[in-house]
Design a protein around this nucleic acid. Sequence first.
DNA 1: TTGTTTTTTCAGTATTTTCCGAAATTTAGT
DNA 2: ACTAAATTTCGGAAAATACTGAAAAAACAA
Lengths: 173, 173
Amino acid sequence: MTQEGDNFKTIRDEFVAQWGVMGTQWGINRTMAQIHALLMTSLEPLSTDEVMEELNISRGNAHTNLKELVNWGLLRIVTKKGDRKEYFEAEKDVWEIFRRISQERKRREIDPAMAVLTRCKESAAQMKSDEAKAFHDQMAELEEFVSFASKMSDRVSSMPHGKAIQLAMKLLG
Amino acid sequence: MTQEGDNFKTIRDEFVAQWGVMGTQWGINRTMAQIHALLMTSLEPLSTDEVMEELNISRGNAHTNLKELVNWGLLRIVTKKGDRKEYFEAEKDVWEIFRRISQERKRREIDPAMAVLTRCKESAAQMKSDEAKAFHDQMAELEEFVSFASKMSDRVSSMPHGKAIQLAMKLLG
DNA sequence: TTGTTTTTTCAGTATTTTCCGAAATTTAGT
DNA sequence: ACTAAATTTCGGAAAATACTGAAAAAACAA
């Protein structure tokens, strides 16, 4: 291993560690964020064992989080001929990463919120007191806004990269 | 208390509870989300004691989370003359709520991410190996995208409500 | 089928986060 | 200055979450 190789490993490890810390700050677990960082910056796909080794984590932990990242569409499984192991490769295109994360967060965060708001709004619809009317109106406004944001998110994240840039330029220009 | 009053309290409590659960799913603590839900749907500002009572939580917990919501700009403190207590009132306008949350998340999530990416990119800038070059390029792409998203977020969340709607219509139309 | 490699599951443990309750501090009236 | 009301802080308890390690299951080859 050359001197430069060591430097690279050092800075990459720092990125992995920092990304892990940041993950926890936005409600993603540390290991998942670290694995994602590791594979985003790896030229070759890695096996479960290599990930375990690199991050000093257990097999169960590595396995669970690798599969979760596959569910998010941020990793894909690849195989090598004559080798029974699964290897994991990260999506590296930033626009594609953004799209996958947007879609997943919408599914997990926005859609359930909509359901709650709609149900609460409807339950309050027939009530006559001032309190209940205000509650109903507040639910309706929140629901409208969330629905709207949801549609916008769909629209933007289904754009090809080029279209998105165009739109952005108009906004920033 | 009328029959309808009871019904209203029931559905409001359900909203508060559900919003709390959702909070935990997106990395916000349950109590903070519940207090926000409670005050968003309250016609009158509430005191710390009223919040404690309504949610069955301790004074310390109520206090900490009320102040945190004030820091987020989602609640403001109001006082009544001849009363030494502080009362808390929620911002109810959905566009304003969205702006405050966007700004806070940017400050907490995006800005630190930028710092990490920039530092890692610069550390790898002089390295010559293929691995290091790929790492540098990946950091640069991520940094560019995040910076870009950050500017977009600023731009959109500083729009008045009307302008935002116009933009959205063009996107959805 | 039998043995070997790899993946998956999960009960128990460790860590992190949240919360309570009470003491300490601050604020304001008399 | 003294008292009373309200706010703030914080050590330790409780709850929620993440992780380990090992066993079970599955996949594959001989």
